[in-house]
Design a protein around this nucleic acid. Structure first.
Lengths: 161, 161
DNA sequence: CTTTTAATCATACTAAAGTAGGTATGATCA
DNA sequence: TGATCATACCTACTTTAGTATGATTAAAAG
């Protein structure tokens, strides 16, 4: 534990320690330069320039090291295609508009499920004649000639799924 | 055009110009401080420190001003409901698997378009008998009894649109 | 209370679809 | 070269589909 916290301390204050050391080094450098300055009096401007350059660099380094990184966020909206569930919506208004009765619709559905007139008659407990009668009415209301056309048209008109 | 490019030049080099002006101002300041230094010789350390502080600040300012922002790209997936274009993809492998010939497929398509055997015969210039023969083969291959079932099953199997 | 309408069933018929069998031909393939 | 296959056509027949017309009934609408 104690060991770990020492390591933590070092890492947390790494920048500060480094800064202190560089500062100390700089002071030595400056002191040395000062000595030089005494000897070569004309080097004063160079000295000032050096300080300026070094501390500018230090400032840049400090800023880059300590400042929170600037984050520019670019939001890209990506369109993802989602297919619609293809829900059947019965066109009730059209059904009443064409005056298609409940029984006729029932027969139309069975027809669309590929049943023969005989099968339809058996399914709804009526005679074959009745189914045929309903078919005739249906065909004239849908304005078609054959059952295949009736199925197709009814599907297009959203009368059946 | 010329006016615009002058403006562009100013904006593009804004930082540089500002930097030059500040530098000039600093030089004046330094010169003034130098004069002071001649009078008060002991102020040399203060002078150096001031330079250090000022240029550190300059460095920090420069770094913050000129550092490129880190670009973080966030992709947001936006769901867009798209009515499928309902592209029909013919199940060719199944067609060959069921050994459905070109002619049979042709007749199957016409059948699905609600044509009678007579109409189909007229459309492809063959006799009614031929169409019926093809129908028989089709029905046995699709394992159905009636044309309505053949159409339905062929649609489900993606043999026809 | 009468009229209308949906639903039912019937008969008689025609048209279309489907079944069962066969023949023929040209192209492809082993 | 003989076997196979897609295509085409045929006859004869059955089944299913569709047309035309009419009758009955029950319930809803006027």
């Amino acid at each position: 534990m104690s060991h770990a916290s020492h390591e933590d301390f070092f890492f947390k204050h790494k920048s500060t320690i480094l800064y202190s050391i560089s500062l100390a080094a700089l002071l030595f450098l400056l002191k040395w330069l000062e000595l030089r300055l005494i000897i070569f009096d004309h080097l004063f401007e160079i000295y000032a320039g050096l300080i300026a350059i070094i501390f500018t660099a230090l400032g840049i380094w400090l800023a880059l090291k300590l400042s929170k990184p600037k984050i520019e966020t670019i939001v890209i909206e990506k369109e993802v295609e989602v297919s619609r569930p293809e829900v059947f919506v019965r066109n009730s208004s059209l059904i009443s508009q064409l005056e298609i009765s409940k029984r006729e619709l029932e027969i139309l559905n069975l027809m669309a499920q590929c049943h023969s007139n005989d099968e339809i008659a058996a399914a709804i407990f009526v005679s074959l004649s009745t189914v045929k009668s309903h078919n005739q009415n249906l065909f004239s209301k849908l304005d078609v000639k054959r059952r295949t056309q009736a199925i197709e048209k009814a599907r297009q008109l959203k009368i059946i799924p």
